[in-house]
Each structure stands twice: as structure tokens, then as C-alpha cells.
Amino acid sequence: MRRLTASGTPLAGWRLQGLDLEPHAAHLSRADVRGLVVLGGRVPDELARDLVARGAVIIPPDPTCPVEPFRARLYSPFDLYGGLETAGYPSTVDARAYAWSREARTQHDAWATLLRAVHDDAVQDALVEALHGLDVVGVMGGHALERGSSDYADAARLGHALADAGRVVLTGGGPGAMEAANLGALAPTADAVETALGRLSAVPSFRPSVEAWAELALQVRDDLGAGDGPARSYGIPTWFYGHEPPNVFCDGIAKYFSNALREDVLLAQSAGGLVVLPGAAGTVQEIFQACTPLYYAPEGEPLPPLVLVGLEHWTETVPVWPALRALGAGRPLGEVLHLVETPEEAAALLLG
């Protein structure tokens, strides 16, 4: 920023998003700012008046909105859960953002709608930048899967196997199977996975207490030494399902207000393949949403594998598999559909 303003280059067409401009006030006061747009961030009043007077456009943050709509980076678990231990979950950004989105006055308010849309666009931009050039594998599954169960442990081991082989794990960012996959990816060793699984089983679910569920997870995350190396997993949760808190084991969190956009981004970014663990209605919706672009893909276009885990679940409990096979018959889609029994088989299939 300082090099840009010092160069004397006109700032027309530039967008300064979510930045603290106070350290750059002197440089900006001398720059040609006609056509500059400042989105959110921190702009001292005197600087703001000066910029506007010289032709810049400033869109300030809304103090009633609990999130920064023009944020320039992904969330961390600490961004969303700050204040949890001292003031409880309702005080956190995560809980306050959900409550704000559900208020009667924001449901049909054009300004609130715009803020939500801008926020989601900014988060999406940050996520695409974070994932650029990485080999991303999506992992989907039900939110109700409890810590301490064998299926939860299997999902964690799947996440670890993928991350250990150099893949970046991308999940819906919520509890259950999603949390397990992010946990496994975060853990540096297989032994660390097993230790974490044992500790987390003390609080099986986020019901009835999000505080107990999240506080224990934050302690486990800290002991895993998260952040000491390259990012191994990301989560994409949504405030549309605000009753499902985000898990803390992601290296970065792209939380959206729009569930439709969130699901589309998750699927689009899983270019290295998609593993679907047992789930219910939400997971079924995601399966067919993933299937649609594969069904209509042009001839010769390489398609990522779509791997369903759980023979009985997907053929009898929730019989999605017969419909998928029918759709894939005689099409390239059929060649990338797989049904396996265990997460280990899914990992072996994706990792070759």
C-alpha cells in the first residue's frame, strides 16, 4: 500500500477492502484518489472526509452488523468463538451473526440483504485465493455423527489419510462427520488422531451445550499444534443452519449466510474428488448437486471421482445409489461413480 501511494500512480479503479488505512493516511493525503473505493476496514474520520472531498468513495462498516462484510481473509476458529470461555456461546461472533441474520428487521431489509451478499462474496474470494493451486478433496457427511462412535473415528482417519498424502480436505465445516474429517486432517500423526479421538469422546455432541463441545475441541486443537505447517483442511459452514456450530479443526473457515452459495462453492472447489459419508437429507441434496455438473459435462472433460461410503446406507437406508447408477448409465458420469464400504477404501481409491 505504501509503495503504491508513494509511486504517484492514480488510484482510480482500486478497491481497498477491509484494511486499516490509518498507517497510510499521510501517503493517501498526497495521492490522486479520484475513483478509489474503500470497502469497510478502518478509516479515521479526518482521513475519510479528506478522501471523499477529493473524489474517493467510502462504504463504512455497519456497527449493527456483527461481522465485517468487506473482510479480506477467512475466519479462524478464534474469530468465531472469541469470548466463549468468559461470556458463553451467545456472546461469540458466530452466535451473534446467526441471531442478526434471523432478526425480523433484517429479514427483508435491503441494506442487511446487501451486507450478507457482500460478506459472502468477500469470503468466497478469500477461499478461492486460499485454495488456489492445491489438490482439494471434499468430504461430506451428516452433522449428527457423535464423537466416540466408530463412524466418527473412521471419518477422522479418512481426513488424516488424505491430508497426509498431500491433499487438502474441504468439508461443510460443521459438527459430526465434517468435524471428524477436519480433525483427522489437522492431526500431524496417526497416533495424534487416536489421542484426540479419545479426549473428544468426553463430550459427544454439541447438544445440549455448545460451550462444552467447543471448549474441549479448542483445547484439543491447541495440543495438536495447529498452525505449525501448511494448511491441511478448510471448512465451509453456513449461518443458514445456525443451530449447527462450526467445528474448530479447520485451518481456515469460510462461513456463509447463503447455504446455496456455500454448497455450490464446496462442490466446485473439490476438484480432486468428493467422498460422501453416510448422512440424511442435507447430504442427499449435496450428492445430487454434485452429480448434476458431472452428468452434463462435455465429452472428454476429465471428471473428479464421486465416492459414496456405506453399502447398506446408500442402497437400502437411503437408496441413492440406484438412482445415481441409472443417471450414469452410458455417460462419463458412470465411470467416476464409486460405492465402497469403508473410508479406507475411499482413501485408497482417491490416492491411487
Rank of each mutant, 00 (worst) to 15 (best):
S91E: 03
T5L: 14
V37S: 09
G279I: 01
T238N: 08
D223V: 02
A177K: 06
R199H: 01
Y75M: 11
G242T: 11
A153K: 04
G184L: 13
A31P: 15
A260H: 11
L51Y: 02
L186P: 05
L218A: 12
Q285S: 13
F257P: 15
A12C: 10
D251W: 09
V307S: 04
P302T: 00
I287H: 07
G225Y: 03
V340R: 01
A130M: 06
Y89T: 08
L327D: 07
A347P: 01
A110L: 15
S150G: 07
L39S: 11
L170R: 09
G300W: 00
D125R: 12
P60R: 09
P60I: 02
W14R: 07
A126N: 09
A153W: 02
H338R: 00
E345C: 05
A53P: 06
P237S: 06
A110S: 15
L145F: 02
L134C: 11
I59L: 14
G273R: 03
A126F: 02
S29P: 15
I253Y: 05
T9A: 15
T315A: 06
E301L: 04
V210R: 03
L51T: 10
G40Y: 05
R54Y: 09
E345S: 10
L4T: 03
P175V: 09
G330C: 01
V220C: 10
D228Q: 13
P332M: 06
W100H: 14
M1I: 00
G282M: 00
G148H: 04
R105A: 15
V210H: 03
A347N: 00
N182A: 12
A110E: 15
G184S: 13
G235L: 10
L183F: 07
P188I: 01
Y296K: 00
A97C: 11
V123N: 12
A192G: 12
Y98D: 08
A297F: 03
R2G: 09
D94H: 12
A290G: 11
V275N: 00
L47Q: 11
L170A: 13
A87L: 09
E22Q: 14
G88N: 05
V265S: 05
R167W: 05
L267N: 07
S29V: 08
F78S: 15
S270K: 04
R54T: 08
T5Q: 12
L333I: 07
Q107N: 10
P237I: 08
V248F: 03
A217V: 08
D62L: 03
V210S: 02
A214G: 02
L74G: 05
V93H: 03
L47T: 14
E299W: 07
G83W: 00
P208G: 13
L84A: 05
I58D: 06
A97V: 04
A329H: 06
A177H: 05
A192Q: 04
L349S: 02
T283R: 05
E341G: 15
V275G: 00
L28I: 10
V318P: 11
E46I: 09
E129M: 07
E335C: 10
L303D: 01
L200K: 00
L16C: 13
G235S: 13
T195F: 08
A192R: 08
A165Q: 01
P343T: 03
A281Q: 13
T113M: 10
H143F: 01
L183M: 10
F78W: 14
A156W: 03
A153T: 10
R30G: 12
V336H: 02
G83K: 00
